[in-house]
Computed example of a mutant assay.
Amino acid sequence: MAGLLALAALAGPALAVQPSERLSDPALEARARSLSTEIRCMVCQNQSIDDSDAQLAKDLRVLVRERLSAGDSDAAVRDFLVARYGEFVLLKPRFQGHTLVLWLAAPVLLAIGAFASFAAWRRRNRAGADNRLTSEEEAALARVLSEDDMRRS
């Protein structure tokens, strides 16, 4: 039963591309499928057009196949879609000047968090070392505890 559920979950995205959309040339179809996994569905936004059943995703899949059939390269198809819909249409934005913050923000924030955690850990360890009792304080504590034990007995 679990195997059937897993198979059904995996088969879902494959059903988005309709047989009528597929190209007869297997090489072009493979390129189209590869490109379709890189392009964001503007309706679903967290899915590629290859995975989405939205009408706009279908239109974009057909457009990708038309451009490839017309002889466009993969880069030309991506550039066409970016010119038409903006950089957001790419699931993985390009590494360019205006996307630099997008690409570098996560690693920089991770490094800052790691440094802050390390600094807090060191501060806590140093504070623990400074809070040890002196020999006079340990002797006084032992006296107080022994007096407390005598009172209880």
Rank of each mutant, 00 (worst) to 15 (best):
C44K: 15
N125P: 00
Q18I: 15
V89E: 07
E66T: 14
T99D: 01
L110G: 08
E21W: 03
W103P: 07
V144P: 00
S52W: 14
E87Y: 13
A6W: 14
V108G: 03
D79A: 03
K92L: 06
R152N: 03
E29W: 09
R67W: 11
F80V: 00
D50K: 12
A16S: 09
N125W: 13
L110Q: 09
G113Q: 07
E21Y: 04
E136H: 14
A140W: 12
S135D: 09
E87M: 13
D79I: 00
S34E: 14
R65F: 01
H98D: 07
Q45K: 14
V82Y: 11
A106F: 15
L60R: 10
E138I: 02
Q96H: 05
L104G: 03
L68Y: 04
R122I: 01
R152V: 05
S117I: 09
C41F: 11
R84H: 12
M1K: 02
K92G: 01
A70C: 01
L104N: 11
A16F: 07
M42V: 00
M150P: 00
G12C: 04
A54G: 00
R124N: 05
Y85Q: 08
A120S: 12
V108F: 07
E66K: 14
N46G: 02
D130V: 05
L7D: 13
A120F: 06
D74C: 08
A83R: 15
D79R: 13
Q45S: 05
Q96L: 14
A83L: 12
R61V: 02
A54M: 08
P13F: 12
P107H: 08
D148K: 10
L7S: 06
D72G: 00
D148N: 15
Q18C: 04
V82P: 08
S24H: 06
A114R: 02
D148Y: 05
W121C: 11
P26E: 11
L100C: 05
R40C: 01
A11V: 03
R31A: 08
E87N: 04
T37S: 09
A6P: 02
D149V: 10
